[in-house]
């Protein structure tokens, strides 16, 4: 089985400060891999390396390699194309200054899609998947920024799905979303698994337990342990720190 993503000896520094200290692991195709770990452990940094948005942080330096389908992402000439292959849901929802419809149609349009019927179809499908369609279907032309915080977060999920990514990265997607809606989106993620690989950064260990095939535990820029979710959440994971964090007795 080919790996979807291969990360080897990845080091990231912000200035002199190390954020990832040489981590290596693989992401299998069509798995849900959850990444857990306390604050400052480098989870967000890892996602930013994968879609090369860390390039917007001038003081950040990256060493090591990240391969997507066996190709080093640094050698991919069209970085915009790379970013469209990777869906990214950031922890804080940011609405584009556009209508709800145009928010979701943004990525397909930047990729060159113009056909109205196809755009309509994408917008409806993505809003459905993000559990937002029923709430907004009558006002697709109002500004996306007029939605509530939780609705905006679901709008960013719809946007991330709009360009049919191969890998979907979610960074603490549920902070602003109520538990019932979170459950609906979790169900969608499970069904999306057949189409794409999912990297789920989460502070809710129970969410990782519910969804993930495998779980990686990060701590202060180190990958402490990566294994099947069953093992990580069992009584005897390989590392004591993993057990303590998962069971809430950490620190």
């Amino acid at each position: 089985m080919e790996n979807k993503i291969e990360i080897s000896d990845l080091q990231v520094h912000y200035g002199d400060k190390s954020a990832l200290n040489g981590i290596s692991f693989d992401v299998h195709p069509n798995e849900i891999l959850s990444i857990i770990g306390p604050a400052q452990s480098g989870k967000t940094t890892l996602l930013k390396v994968i879609n090369r948005t860390l390039e917007f942080t001038p003081e950040a330096t990256v060493q090591g390699s990240v391969k997507l389908d066996g190709v080093d992402i640094d050698t991919i000439g069209d970085v915009y194309e790379l970013r469209r292959r990777i869906g990214m849901v950031l922890p804080l929802p940011v609405g584009l200054p556009l209508s709800i419809y145009d928010n979701v149609a943004f990525a397909p349009r930047t990729a060159g899609l113009r056909t109205k019927s196809e755009l309509d179809e994408i917008v409806e499908r993505c809003l459905q998947q993000a559990a937002l369609w029923d709430e907004v279907k009558d006002r697709l032309n109002t500004l996306g920024t007029k939605l509530s915080g939780g609705q905006q977060q679901r709008l960013t999920i719809a946007r991330a799905l709009s360009h049919q990514p191969e890998v979907l990265c979610l960074d603490e997607f549920s902070i602003a979303i109520d538990p019932v809606t979170t459950m609906r989106i979790e169900d969608v993620l499970k069904t999306l698994q057949t189409e794409m690989t999912i990297l789920l950064v989460t502070n809710l260990v129970q969410q990782a337990k519910r969804l993930a095939n495998r779980t990686a535990f990060f701590l202060n820029g180190d990958l402490i342990e990566i294994d099947t979710t069953d093992v990580i959440f069992s009584d005897n994971p390989a590392n004591q720190a993993t057990y303590d964090y998962v069971n809430g007795t950490f620190g």
Binding site: T53, Y80, E81, L90, A107, A160
Partner: peptide
């Protein structure tokens, strides 16, 4: 970044 992550 909200727009950049969409490939803009």
């Amino acid at each position: 970044e909200a727009a950049y992550v969409l490939g803009a």
